[in-house]
């Protein structure tokens, strides 16, 4: 099964229509899509506007390949499950988001071994086929579901610091609060 997800906040037809095209040519592979609110009908996808968190986790677990906008929730879930994930970042110039931060996110996440970043529909379709052929790759292992030790230590220190003052004061926080 291929799982496509574009988050719940904004529609993303460019991605879903490309996945729909791929699904039309590969009818032996079921494609499940979480589409957000959209009026578009996708003939070859099993579409649902949104799903609850446990269903989302099940879909990630069962998918052979995940196709998504460059949203961190999906990227982190895919990494934790050790799944190949293809990212198509949303573009502000096409009205797909308020700004281009997804392109920056995708560029940084491309360094991860299970992440492929694509910019257009043709690249997306060939990336799905390529990812399917390596979905049994032993190099794709599930990764830890927790933050780096350094960040966990910083949060722990912050919670347990004895006095009422910050553990690591910054210039901003040493100013008196104007409330």
């Amino acid at each position: 099964m291929i799982f496509a997800t574009v988050g719940t906040q904004l529609p993303f037809d460019r991605l879903l229509l490309a996945v729909d095209t791929w699904a039309a040519m590969n009818s032996d592979v079921p494609v499940l899509a979480q589409t957000g609110r959209t009026a578009t009908r996708y003939a070859h996808l099993t579409a649902t506007p949104q799903m609850d968190q446990s269903r989302f986790a099940d879909c990630v677990a069962q998918a052979r390949v995940i196709v998504a906008h460059a949203g961190m929730g999906t990227i982190l879930s895919a990494i934790e499950a050790g799944k190949p994930v293809i990212l198509m970042p949303r573009r502000a110039d096409l009205g797909e988001h308020r700004n281009d931060h997804q392109r920056d996110t995708a560029a940084e996440m491309a360094a991860l071994s299970n992440v492929t970043v694509v910019e257009d529909s043709a690249a997306l379709c060939s990336a799905i086929s390529a990812a399917l052929s390596r979905s049994n790759d032993p190099g794709l292992v599930a990764r830890s579901g927790v933050a780096s030790a350094r960040l966990l230590d910083a949060v722990r220190d912050f919670i347990w610091s004895e006095d009422g003052r910050p553990v690591h004061a910054t210039a901003a926080s040493s100013r008196p609060l104007r409330a």
Partner: peptide
Amino acid sequence: GGHWVQLLRLRP
């Protein structure tokens, strides 16, 4: 979404 997933990674 991603905000919640990142919070969960801080749970330990």
